[in-house]
C-alpha cells in the first residue's frame, strides 16, 4: 500500500470520526444530509458483499467493518435517536435521492468489469458513491450557519477522493496491470463535484471568515 492510499483511507476515516463526534458528543446532526448518509450506507452494503467470502488483509476487513458500522449507525442516529433526530434539518434536505439509485444501477448493469452479481454491485457502489454527496452539497448551500465540524466533515470526504486519484496514478506506474477505469472515471467525477466546495472552504479558511456557500 502506498502513502497516497493510506492518507486517503485515513482522511476518509477522519471524516467519519468528525461526523460521529458531532452526532455522538454534541448530539447534533444540524447541517448533515440524511439522504447522503443513506446513500453511503447503501454504497458500503453493495460494495462489501464479499466481506466474509474474500479475505484480502486484516486492515481491509477492519476498515470495511468500520465503514459499514459507522454509516448504518449514523443513519440510525439521525432517524431514531430522540435528541439527535430533532436537530435534523428535514425541510432543507429535500434532494430526491431515490432518483440517483436507479440510474446508477442501470449504468452498473451496462458498464461493469464482469457481468456477475458481485461485479455489478461493485460498479453500482462506485457510481452511487460518486454522486452520493449531492444532497449534502445542496443542503450546505441552504444552510445559513455551517458549523466547523460539518465543513470539516465534507472537506475530509472530498480530500479522500483527491488522495485516491493520486494513489491510482502511482499504482498505474508501479503496478503494470492495475487499471480500474470504472473507479477512475467515477472518482474523478466525484472529486469534481467538490471543486466548488473546496474553493469556498479554502477561501473561508484563508480569510478567517465563516464558511458560507453562495445559493
Amino acid at each position: 500500500m502506498n502513502a497516497f492510499r493510506l492518507a486517503g483511507d485515513m482522511t476518509h476515516l477522519l471524516s467519519v470520526v468528525v461526523l460521529l463526534l458531532k452526532i455522538h458528543t454534541i448530539k447534533s446532526c444540524a447541517g448533515i444530509s440524511l439522504k447522503t448518509q443513506e446513500l453511503y450506507a447503501l454504497v458500503f452494503a453493495a460494495r462489501y458483499l464479499d466481506l466474509f467470502i474474500h479475505f484480502i488483509s486484516l486492515y481491509n476487513t477492519v476498515m470495511k467493518l468500520v465503514f459499514l458500522a459507522s454509516s448504518f449507525s449514523i443513519v440510525w442516529y439521525m432517524r431514531r435517536h430522540k435528541i439527535v433526530r430533532r436537530t435534523y434539518d428535514k425541510d432543507h434536505d429535500t434532494f430526491r435521492h431515490h432518483f440517483l439509485v436507479l440510474p446508477c444501477l442501470a449504468l452498473a448493469l451496462l458498464i461493469n468489469e464482469r457481468f456477475t452479481f458481485r461485479e455489478v454491485m461493485w460498479a453500482f457502489s462506485i457510481y452511487l458513491e460518486a454522486v452520493a454527496i449531492l444532497p449534502q452539497l445542496v443542503l450546505l448551500q441552504r444552510t445559513r450557519n455551517i458549523d466547523n465540524l460539518t465543513g470539516q466533515y465534507v472537506f475530509f470526504l472530498g480530500a479522500y477522493r483527491v488522495l485516491y486519484i493520486l494513489n491510482w496514478i502511482y499504482r498505474y506506474f508501479t503496478e503494470p496491470h492495475f487499471v480500474h477505469w470504472i473507479s477512475w472515471v467515477a472518482g474523478i467525477v466525484q472529486t469534481l463535484l467538490y471543486a466548488d466546495f473546496f474553493y469556498y472552504y479554502i477561501m473561508s479558511w484563508k480569510n478567517n471568515v465563516k464558511l458560507e456557500l453562495p445559493a
Binding site: 476518509h12 474474500h54 470495511k64 494513489n167
Partner: peptide, 10 residues
Amino acid sequence: EPSSYDKDEL
C-alpha cells in the same frame, strides 16, 4: 487474470 482484479481498495 491480473492480480489487480482483486479489489483491495475501500
